[in-house]
């Protein structure tokens, strides 16, 4: 059994970063196809941190964000989620609906479903990449959506998923699309339970001993 406060070795964190890299690579390829735009991603971060600090990775607690989250069950209980700040959210809507950059300034029902669609595509392709890499049994629940204060959104999500112990594993990647008048940046998180971290690392051929 693994201890309750897992501090993984550098090798294990590398393995997790690789998972994140492959999953996100697949996800942004799908998004690039959907938007017909080139999308970049940052080098993934794999670390343990108090869950409150995940908020600071994205922005201030009162910042307006959209968030799509999918709960995972099966071999890898946990959660994957994408967070976009409000500006990026509006730009995603512009791009998806073929509107001029800057047209969207608030999220109506149409806009909301456009953002949900982006979230679904991203989470779905992330999960399927992990699945083909590891052959683990990963079931994903229906996506959930929120559009409000960052702190309220992330905290509620972690409470609901039971991830409120002192430190959680965070795989984080930033995705961005640079364009003079319409850059988009988003944050991706995968939150996993200690047991599922073991399984992921095992499936990649690293042993946890």
């Amino acid at each position: 059994m693994m201890n309750n406060n897992p501090e993984l070795s550098a090798v294990h964190l590398d393995a997790l970063r690789e998972i994140s890299n492959i999953g996100m690579g697949n996800a942004i390829t799908s998004l690039a196809q959907l938007l017909d735009r080139r999308i970049n991603m940052s080098v993934p971060l794999a670390t343990f941190m108090p869950f409150e600090e995940t908020i600071q990775l994205v922005g201030g607690p009162e910042e307006l964000v959209s968030c799509v989250s999918v709960r995972l069950s099966g071999d890898v209980p946990g959660m994957v989620l994408f967070v976009f700040n409000s500006k990026s959210t509006y730009r995603l809507v512009d791009l998806l609906m073929g509107l001029d950059p800057g047209t969207t300034g608030e999220l109506d029902e149409m806009g909301e479903s456009a953002v949900k669609e982006v979230g679904n595509v991203l989470t779905g392709s992330f999960i399927s990449a992990i699945y083909s890499l590891t052959a683990l049994d990963i079931k994903s629940a229906v996506p959930m959506f929120a559009y409000d204060m960052l702190g309220a959104v992330l905290t509620s999500l972690m409470v609901a998923s039971g991830r409120t112990e002192d430190r959680v594993l965070v795989l984080e990647t930033r995705l961005f699309q640079e364009q003079a008048e319409a850059s988009i940046s988003g944050h991706f998180f995968m939150l996993a339970e200690p047991g599922s971290i073991n399984k992921l690392i095992d499936a990649l051929g690293f042993s946890m001993t």
Binding site: S69, R71, A141, V142, P143, M144, F145, A146, D148, A152, V153, S156, L157, V159, A160, S161
Partner: peptide, 17 residues
């Protein structure tokens, strides 16, 4: 005590708020 997320995932709508 709000319910921040909308969607059909029962486990996430346990209404902890």
């Amino acid at each position: 005590g709000a319910q921040m997320f909308s969607g059909l995932d029962d486990k996430l709508t346990l209404n902890i708020g």
